[in-house]
Design a binder for these strands. Structure first.
Lengths: 140, 140
DNA sequence: TATTGTTATACTCTATAACTATA
DNA sequence: TATAGTTATAGAGTATAACAATA
């Protein structure tokens, strides 16, 4: 039962928090010459290679047309490979290079450091519960 | 110390959550013929009347030029009053009308019901901690 | 005919600059 | 001259439509 009714709407708290988190990431990404979408794409290629660009676009919540320039840039700089699928030459197999993995992890580490400063404002218990709740609520 | 390092970046969880919260609000607001910015403005006029439109814009994180059409609409529909300040006739004193308060509370109630569905996925303890943490982190 | 990637175009939202009226 | 509000314009980011290559 809601005991906590005297508070702003969730969106009124979550959206500004998201904005400030994005703002905190931006200088870190700039230090590694990554755009936000470039970093998100690298994170989306975290594990196994993806079979199509459209699959990546959907996975990271981007438009497939918007992704193209992002991938062009990542490829030019040697962060990803875009190989035509021998089985279906329309599709492009996407994978991260070692160099791409390095820059992604370096950026991620910097971002984590910034996040620590924020999370330090929470008690250890609230911090754990907050992260647990976030993971629950952010997946559809 | 971070025990929770195997997780997406905070922004990668918070921003999508914010988007889904906004998406959940939209049908409720439409039911009350409110735009998101209209609702946000009504919420910003929660308590005491504000002395200027620029003050409201800053309070809700909006551009003052963007607020004008929003306030025009709210005033036309009798949700707010915009009275020239007798002490400084450049400024407009802003306040909510009873009608505006009613529509805001009705919308708020609908939004809270939607939020309940989401928060129900959390344990009571995590829910309390999540809201406490959100309030801490969303204020600068 | 349908789908992948691509390009070109249009649209939405937001910010910047310029104007008026008061001070 | 400086400020509150307003208007008009320009910009960034995003989505839609149309196209070439392949299936």
């Amino acid at each position: 039962m809601p005991v906590d009714d005297d508070r702003p709407d969730l969106a009124a708290m979550v959206v500004p928090l998201g904005r400030s988190l994005v703002a905190a990431e931006e200088p870190v990404l700039r230090d590694h010459s990554l755009t936000m979408w470039g970093y998100i794409a690298l994170c989306g290629l975290d594990e196994a290679p993806l079979r199509t660009q459209a699959a990546l676009a959907q996975a990271i919540g981007a438009d497939k047309t918007r992704l193209i320039g992002v991938l062009d840039d990542l490829q030019e700089r040697g962060f990803i490979r875009r190989e035509p699928d021998p089985a279906d030459r329309r599709a492009h197999l996407l994978s991260v290079t070692a160099k791409g993995r390095r820059v992604r992890e370096a950026a991620r580490a910097g971002i984590r450091r910034r996040e620590e400063e924020l999370l330090a404002r929470l008690s250890p218990g609230d911090r754990r519960a907050f992260l647990r709740a976030l993971r629950t609520l952010s997946q559809p």
